[in-house]
Nucleic acid binder design. Structure first.
Length: 573
RNA sequence: GCGGAUAUGGUGAAGUGGUUAUCACCUGAGGUUUCCAACCUCAUGUCGUGGGUUCGAUUCCCGCUAUCCGCACCA
C-alpha cells in the first residue's frame, strides 16, 4: 500500500517538476543543453543539502571519538592503484562488430576462465577467440578489441606533457586512510576512533539514468572507524531492542528471505558478523529516520560473496524504497585491514599502523653474538655489513670458532676474538598491527532524493486538484518559518518584516516573508516546499502583540504572544 | 553504447510550411479581500541545439545534446 504510493512513477515525475519549479533541483548546465548525470541544487535544495549534511555530521561527531577531516578530490594515480580502484574501476568492454552490442569482457568469459577479471586487453581478446564466445545479442563471433572502461575522470597535475597522472576521487575514503597517522596522534594513539569526510566523489558512468540516483559527480559522506581486531568492543545493542530491522542476509545463500530481527539478535545469530558493524547499522537506521526517511521503507541487504567490493569482508547495504524501487543509499562495510595495508606496501610508509600494548609484558633473555667493530673493521673493510647482518640473524651462539660464512662465493672467516657474547634482556611491551576498518559510506544525493520522495504528499481536495505538501522534518527543512501579514497594509506588513528580521538574527534559523496573494495560497506555497511553521500577523496582532502559529502537518493554528513565539523559535529544533 | 519514444514560457500542456504561436497554473504590479490555492485589471516570459530542403521551417529531413522506456553497464 505504502510501497505502491511511494513507487508511483507519475508521482515521481510530478515531484521532479515541483522540485525544479521551486528551486530544489534541476539538471545542470541546461542553457548549454545539459549534461547527463550532473545536477544543480537550487536556492532551497542548496540549503536542504547543507542541513542534511550538517545533521549527518552532528550525528557522528556527537559520538565523541569521531573527527572531521578533508582531503583533495584530485588524487594521484598511485593512491588509487594501491587502493585497488584502478582495476576495479577499469573494466574492459568488448564490442560486437556485427551488431554493435557492448558487453563487459570478463562477463562474457564467465565460466570459461577461472578468473576473467584479472585479464588485460590482449589476453581477453585471445580468450574470447579461444573459447569461441558468441555475441549474446546476434550470436556471431566478431569482437572488436577490448577497450578499458575507465569509470574515473582522469586529469593531470601540472602541465599535461610533464604532469603527474591523477584522477578525480571515486570515494572520499582514501583521504582518511592516508591521514591515519595524524588522526592516530590526535586521539593519543588510542583505538577505536573514527574520521569522517564529506565531499564530492566522481564516477564517469557510462550511462547515468534515474535522475538523482546515478550521478557523475555526487555528494558522499564517509566514516572510517578504526578498530583493533583483537580488542573486544561491547556496544549496548540492547537499547534498540524495540526496533526490528528488515534484513536480507546472504541473498545467494540459504537464508535469502527477508527477516525481521533486532540488532542484538542478528549479531547473536551471526547474521551480522561483527558487533560494531551491527552497531553502525542501527545508528545509521536511526539517522535515516531522523532525516525523514520512512523507516518502513528501509532494509538492509547483505552482499553476497562475489558482489562484495574488492576490499570488503562483510558488507551490508542500506536500501531505501522509492519511485525507482529499492536503491542502495548507504554501504556499511567491514574492510578489514585491506586499505591501510595496501598503502603501507605501496608507499613504504610504516606510519599506517597502531601499537597494541600487551597486558603482560613479555621478557625474553637471550644471548647474542655481537661483532666488535674495532676488530672486524680493519679486516673486512667495506664487507663489514655482511658480517654484522649475519651475526644479527643468528638464532644461537655458534659452538665453534672460527666461523666460516659464505657470501656471494666469497668465504669470510670470523675468529673468536672478533665477537663478544652478550647477555640481553629483551622486553616486549606490545606490538605493531594494522587496524581494521569499518566504513559506513553514504550517498547523500540518493538520501536527499528519498527524503523528498517520502515527504512528498498529495492530498486529494474537494475539487479536481491535489494539495501538495512536503512533510520535511524541521531538522532539514530549508525554510523554518514564513511570516505572513494577513494583508499588506495598516502596519501588518511592518510588524511582519520586523518579526522576520528578529527570527533571522537567531543562529541557524531561516525565515521568509511572504505578502502577496491570498493567505490560503501563501500557506499552500509554504507547505509545498515544506516550511514547518507559518506565522500570521493579523489586525489583532497590531492591538495586542499576538500572532497565530500554524503547523504545517496539522494545519492547526494557535494564537500566542510575540514574546512566547520568540521563545518557541529560540528553542526550535 | 544500442533500439524505441520525446524535446513548445518557471511548471503542465495545445497547435501550425506563411502576418504578431495558444491555454492553464505560476511569477510580478495594482485593486479587492478579516485565515487555508477566491476574484478583477495589467504585465513579464517559450518553439533544446547545429545543419539541410524551401521564397519562407517551431512544423519536413539529418547530425548533436538532453529526457523517458527497454537492453547493456553500474554503487
Amino acid at each position: 500500500m505504502l510501497k505502491q504510493m511511494i513507487g508511483d512513477e507519475s508521482k515521481s515525475r510530478r515531484l521532479m517538476s515541483l522540485l525544479k519549479k521551486r528551486g530544489f533541483l534541476q539538471p545542470a548546465f541546461e542553457a548549454y543543453g545539459g549534461v547527463a548525470g550532473l545536477y544543480d541544487y537550487g536556492p532551497l535544495g542548496g540549503r536542504l543539502r547543507r542541513k542534511v549534511m550538517q545533521k549527518w555530521l552532528d550525528h557522528w561527531i556527537s559520538l565523541g571519538n569521531i573527527v572531521e577531516i578533508d582531503s583533495p578530490t584530485i588524487t594521484p594515480e598511485e593512491v588509487l592503484k594501491a587502493s585497488g580502484h584502478i582495476g576495479a574501476f577499469n573494466d574492459y568492454a568488448s564490442e560486437c562488430n556485427s551488431c554493435n552490442s557492448i558487453f563487459r569482457s570478463d562477463h562474457l568469459l564467465e565460466g570459461f576462465h577461472p578468473n576473467p577479471d584479472s585479464l588485460e586487453g590482449d589476453s581477453l581478446d585471445k580468450e574470447l577467440g579461444v573459447h569461441k564466445i558468441t555475441c549474446p545479442t546476434c550470436k556471431k563471433i566478431d569482437w572488436l578489441p577490448a577497450k578499458p572502461l575507465n569509470l574515473m575522470f582522469s586529469t593531470t597535475i601540472g602541465p599535461s606533457n610533464i604532469g603527474r597522472k591523477a584522477y578525480m576521487r571515486p570515494e572520499t575514503a582514501q583521504g582518511m586512510f592516508l591521514q591515519f597517522p595524524s588522526i592516530y596522534r590526535h586521539f593519543r594513539k588510542k583505538l577505536p576512533f573514527g574520521a569522517v569526510q564529506m565531499g564530492k566523489g566522481y564516477r564517469n558512468e557510462i550511462s547515468p539514468r534515474q535522475g538523482m540516483i546515478r550521478l557523475r559527480e555526487f555528494n558522499m559522506a564517509e566514516l572510517e572507524y578504526f578498530i583493533d581486531p583483537l580488542m573486544k568492543i561491547e556496544h549496548d545493542l540492547g537499547q534498540w531492542d524495540s526496533f526490528k530491522l528488515k534484513l536480507i542476509p546472504d541473498p545467494e545463500g540459504n537464508n535469502s528471505e527477508e527477516v525481521l530481527l533486532t540488532v542484538s539478535d542478528a549479531v547473536e545469530m551471526g547474521i551480522i558478523r561483527h558487533q560494531t558493524v551491527g552497531w553502525f547499522m542501527i545508528k545509521t537506521f536511526e539517522l535515516m529516520a531522523e532525516l525523514g526517511i520512512n523507516s518502513e521503507l528501509i532494509r538492509f541487504r547483505q552482499h553476497e560473496g562475489d558482489e562484495m567490493a574488492h576490499y570488503a569482508t562483510d558488507c551490508w547495504d542500506l536500501e531505501i524504497f522509492g519511485g525507482y524501487g529499492w536503491i542502495e543509499c548507504v554501504g556499511i562495510a567491514y574492510r578489514g585491514c585491506y586499505d591501510l595495508e595496501a598503502h603501507q606496501k605501496s608507499s613504504n610508509s610504516n606510519e599506517l599502523k597502531a601499537w597494541r600494548e600487551f597486558e603482560e609484558h613479555i621478557t625474553v633473555e637471550k644471548n647474542i653474538c655481537s661483532p666488535i667493530q674495532s676488530k672486524i673493521g680493519p679486516i673486512f673493510k667495506d664487507k663489514c655489513k655482511i658480517i654484522t647482518d649475519y651475526l644479527e640473524l643468528l638464532e644461537e651462539i655458534p659452538k665453534e670458532f672460527p666461523l666460516k660464512i659464505l657470501n656471494d662465493g666469497i668465504e669470510y672467516i670470523i675468529e673468536e676474538d672478533m665477537v663478544e657474547i652478550k647477555e640481553m634482556k629483551i622486553t616486549q611491551r606490545g606490538e605493531w598491527f594494522t587496524p581494521h576498518v569499518i566504513e559506513p559510506a553514504f550517498g547523500i544525493d540518493r538520501i536527499i532524493w528519498h527524503i523528498l520522495e517520502h515527504s512528498h504528499k498529495e492530498i486529494p481536495k474537494k475539487d479536481d486538484e491535489n494539495y501538495t505538501l512536503l512533510g520535511l522534518k524541521t531538522d532539514v527543512a530549508p525554510v523554518d518559518f514564513t511570516v505572513y501579514p494577513l494583508f499588506e497594509k495598516d502596519g501588518m506588513e511592518i510588524l511582519s518584516k520586523k518579526l522576520v528580521e528578529k527570527i533571522m538574527s537567531m543562529k541557524g534559523i531561516n525565515a521568509n516573508y511572504d505578502g502577496s496573494k491570498s493567505i490560503g495560497r501563501r500557506y499552500a506555497r509554504g507547505d509545498e516546499v515544506g516550511v514547518p511553521f507559518a506565522i500570521t500577523v493579523d489586525h489583532q496582532s497590531l492591538e495586542d502583540n499576538t500572532i497565530t502559529l500554524r503547523e504545517r502537518d496539522t494545519q492547526t493554528q494557535k494564537r500566542m504572544s510575540i514574546e512566547d513565539l520568540l521563545e518557541f523559535v529560540s528553542e526550535y529544533k
